[in-house]
Computed example of a mutant assay.
Amino acid sequence: MSKKNQQLFETIYKQCYPMVLQMCLGYMKGDADLANDLSQEVFINIWNAMESFMGKSSHKTWVYRITVNTCLQYIRKEKKKKKVSIEKVEYALTEESSESSSDQNQSLYHAIGTLEELDRLLIMMVLDGQDYDTISEVMGIKPTNVRVKIHRVKRRLKKILDNE
């Protein structure tokens, strides 16, 4: 890999790591260890794809797509396994017994994890502070549709959180 691509990768890593981690947290329903592992996987995929980046979109949009695809690929692979470890069950039980702001964050990420894939992507981008134009570009929909979808997803999340 060229020196220029190595420097570009380092810049992308520094700028996008918090966003990638937050999206992974959303997809992994708040499991920080799994989100960290998945974030590393995302940057491995970015490293491997650096030379094939065509520049048709911004680097940030490209990183979003790689993050989403990596998370979805992981979820699909895990669905095929269909097993629940005892550690996850114990973790879930201990999480329900304590009340704190991290528990609220955990509840939010869990609720986000119950949404459909595109809705998860949308709400994670909103939480990341992305503007409607960026969200529109990543999702391939018009900015006006983004507003409507955000409103609907927020209502769905409120229902999920109120019922828990």
Results as ranks from 00 to 15, higher is better:
Met1Thr: 10
Asn5Lys: 05
Glu10Pro: 10
Glu10Gln: 14
Ile12Gly: 03
Ile12Met: 05
Gln15Asn: 04
Cys16Met: 07
Pro18Ser: 11
Met19His: 04
Leu21Glu: 12
Gln22Glu: 14
Met23Gly: 08
Gly26Ala: 02
Met28Thr: 08
Ala32Asn: 00
Leu34Cys: 09
Leu38Ala: 01
Gln40His: 10
Glu41His: 03
Val42Trp: 05
Asn45Arg: 09
Glu51Tyr: 03
Glu51Met: 05
Phe53Met: 00
Gly55Arg: 08
His59Ser: 12
Thr61Lys: 10
Trp62Ala: 04
Ile66Asp: 01
Cys71His: 02
Leu72Gln: 14
Leu72Ile: 13
Gln73Trp: 09
Lys83Arg: 08
Val84Gly: 12
Val89Lys: 15
Val89Tyr: 15
Glu90Ala: 15
Glu96Phe: 09
Ser98Glu: 15
Glu99Ser: 14
Asp103Arg: 11
His110Thr: 15
His110Arg: 13
His110Phe: 10
His110Trp: 07
Ala111Glu: 07
Ile112Met: 11
Thr114Asn: 07
Leu118Gln: 13
Leu118Asn: 13
Asp119Ala: 10
Asp131Cys: 11
Tyr132Phe: 15
Thr134Glu: 15
Ile135Glu: 01
Glu137Arg: 05
Val138Met: 01
Ile141Asp: 03
Lys142His: 15
Thr144Ala: 15
Val146Trp: 00
Arg147Leu: 01
Val148Thr: 13
Lys159Pro: 04
Asp162Met: 15
Glu164Asn: 12
Glu164His: 08
